[in-house]
């Protein structure tokens, strides 16, 4: 049974436009001012009727952090119910403070305290029976190698413990485009190298103040040069105030940097303390982005309201192969 709830609030409410200088794209749903309590129909998700707590119990038992929880992902029920999770390594605290992100900002944990994390990630991967694992991290600008060595240890441990057939996807911070850091991660031989651009160039200062659009493109380009056989992937959030033309220009930039796999999903505000949503982008607009990306030569593209950079990563990669 699926019923349509009363949603007049979403249809009648004004747009919280104080932050964003540009008009929303045509057909986008208005965003209620203040705390959003009404969503358009396409941002409704069913919770699994038979929710399986085994994934949750395993992750809690191994004291692992997942971006599913830290980013308060609305896909958590769907993904965990089928035993898929995205591990977030290098601690719970990020040294950056992006205005869209729910991950806590703070002092990073010592590497000594995280010494057994590679083994715990490998143990969970094996127990969950994952064929494709996604490992991401907080930014660790406080460490000499910005966490690259720890990423490499996790990849190597996964390979040793789970075998050569496991597909390992890493979703890394920008490492300030340091070649030594990128070489360290890529020398461990991940199968997919993902670095999210997150948003268009114009919106970087308010959205990702410690990031840099051109630097992120450079990271993807360097990764492709260092390890041409490793698939490169990047993701964007839509609904932050970008125009469709700006999204398409970003796709051109990503292709020019050698990026092969693309994800675009709706930005969803984690709390009233984060950037407001400028618009709820319609599914048809996401479909147009996906079609355009494939026409540009991306080997695979997943664009939709609930798409996240690691959402259904196995299927997204399969379409690239």
């Amino acid at each position: 049974m699926s019923q349509t709830p009363p949603n007049e609030a979403a249809e009648n409410a004004g747009r919280d436009g104080a932050f964003y200088p540009k008009a929303p794209s045509e057909g986008a749903a208005p965003v209620p001012s203040g705390r959003a309590r009404a969503f358009p129909e396409w941002l409704r998700k069913p919770w699994p009727a038979r929710y399986d707590t085994r994934t949750q119990n395993l992750l809690e038992g191994l004291k692992l952090t997942t971006v599913c929880q830290s980013a308060e992902c609305p896909n958590l029920g769907e993904c965990w119910n089928r035993g898929a999770a995205t591990f977030m390594i290098l601690g719970e605290n990020c040294t950056r403070a992006c205005h869209f992100c729910a991950v806590k900002t703070g002092k990073g944990e010592s590497l000594e305290a995280l010494a057994d994390e590679p083994a715990r990630v490998a143990q969970a991967t094996k127990h969950l029976g994952l064929r494709h694992v996604v490992v991401t991290s907080v930014a660790r600008d406080d460490l000499d190698d910005e966490g690259a060595g720890h990423f490499a240890r996790v990849i190597e441990t996964l390979r040793r413990y789970c075998g050569p057939e496991l597909v390992i996807e890493v979703l890394v911070p920008d490492f300030h485009a340091r070649e030594d850091c990128l070489r360290t991660v890529l020398a461990a031989k991940p199968d997919v190298f993902n670095h999210n651009t997150e948003t268009i160039e114009r919106l970087h200062p308010p959205v990702r103040p410690q990031g840099n659009y051109r630097r992120s493109l450079k990271v993807l380009e360097m990764a492709k040069t260092i390890a041409p056989a490793v698939a490169t992937k990047s993701g964007l959030m839509a609904g932050l105030g970008e125009s469709p033309e700006e999204v398409l220009a970003t796709l051109d930039d990503l292709r020019a940097s050698g990026c092969e796999i693309l994800t675009i999903g709706q930005y969803l505000r984690p709390s009233p303390h984060h950037l407001p949503v400028a618009e709820y982008v319609r599914p048809e607009t996401f479909a147009r982005y996906e079609k355009h990306a494939l026409a540009l030569g991306f080997r695979s593209a997943a664009c939709g309201p609930f798409v996240r950079s690691s959402y259904q990563a196995e299927q997204v990669l399969a379409r690239a192969r």
Partner: peptide, 30 residues
Amino acid sequence: NFWFVEEGQDVNEGDDLAELVTDKAAFNLP
């Protein structure tokens, strides 16, 4: 946010019972 059902109503497994709303999305609770 609201109930899809009333007390005394028969439901099948998977039928929507309520709408729950977080900051990020609306969920149908089955």
